[in-house]
């Protein structure tokens, strides 16, 4: 009789600066399937992990924001290609956490399409939302959009793949870098998505993904002085909401709240999600001989 093969399980770590480190704190928590069985031990990200990630995201900002719009578009498209290629992996990822086969397929399809949607916006939002301004004096005057900087975001809790992809895409399409906290209850698809990112020409540090607790990290996400914007799309407990807003005022952080329940709805994707993380820069120059 053939011996039963013991399968090799993946260790799920976090994604910081293009690497997959464990939490410096050494802490983990249990990621369970829908029957309550252990799927894996997820890292319990700490304040220090977040601070490391922000430093790396800041370091990656100049390079990423200087990429051409065309190049960023191609890289987003490449992520979509890689995700398409790894459909089976995500079917296996989503099944145990409650997605029926058809639901998982739909989720993966929508995620791929969402990446392509934003890939297409990279070299267009500037044309739609920038302007040449007819000032009355003898000056040439134009307004362009520039990325806000480093964005800290809570990925949607109940949509561990599509929701995650839907918030990362517009942020990086616009040249920002980010530190994203994965769904706390379903952290594993986010780490598998990090593998996709890692295989997709996305420079290390542009997207950093932590796993852990919102309750613990909301204080640090919102108070970090080198984070330019904070974003979430779920209804949060009112005290957490208030804490985030208050901390944001320490360095006039932009707080982007878009309450989205259904990530399949047409309102869940929009170029305005790109402009949420853009600053308008207006340049003047005299006109003359």
């Amino acid at each position: 009789m053939a011996e039963e093969r013991i399968d090799v399980k993946k260790t799920y770590k976090m994604y910081i600066g293009g690497n997959f480190p464990r939490s410096e704190s050494g802490r983990t928590y249990k990621a369970l399937d829908s029957d309550g069985n252990l799927l894996a031990n997820a890292c319990q990200g700490s304040r220090k992990d977040f601070r490391d990630a922000v430093k790396i995201a800041r370091g990656a900002f100049n390079g990423w924001s200087s990429r051409s719009a065309y190049n960023r578009g191609q890289i987003l498209y490449r992520i979509a290609e890689m995700l398409e290629d790894r459909r089976d992996q995500f079917m296996r990822e989503l099944g145990p956490i409650g997605f029926k086969t058809a639901e998982a397929e739909a989720d993966i399809n929508a995620s791929i399409d969402r990446l392509i949607y934003y890939a297409g916006w990279t070299d267009k939002y500037q044309q739609v939302f920038g302007s040449v301004n007819p000032v009355a004096s003898s000056h040439f005057n134009f307004s362009m959009l520039e990325p806000t900087g480093v964005v800290a975001a809570f990925a949607p809790e109940k949509s561990p793949l599509l929701g995650l992809v839907s918030i990362i895409s517009p942020i990086i399409a616009g040249g920002n870098t980010c530190v994203v906290l994965a769904s706390e209850e379903f952290p594993l698809p986010a780490i598998s998505f990090a593998e996709v990112l890692n295989a997709s020409d996305v420079p290390g540090g542009v997207v950093n993904i932590l796993t852990g607790s919102r309750e613990e990290l909301s204080e640090h996400f919102s108070s970090h002085m080198d984070v330019n914007a904070m974003c979430y799309t779920d209804e949060l407990p009112s005290d957490m909401k208030k804490l985030i807003d208050e901390n944001a005022s320490l360095n006039v952080k932009r707080v982007v709240k878009r309450m989205i329940k259904d990530w399949y709805h047409e309102d869940s994707q929009s170029p305005y999600f790109v402009t949420d993380f853009q600053e308008v820069k207006t340049t003047w120059h005299p006109v003359g001989f």
Binding site: N133, S137, E279, V280, K281, T282, W284
Partner: peptide
């Protein structure tokens, strides 16, 4: 949010104005 090149302190209603960071 504003760059004045070879000029400074010019304003116009058609020209957006506002800041980055703090």
């Amino acid at each position: 949010g504003v760059i004045w090149a070879n000029t400074y302190n010019k304003f116009d209603p058609t020209s957006p104005f506002g800041g980055y960071k703090e």
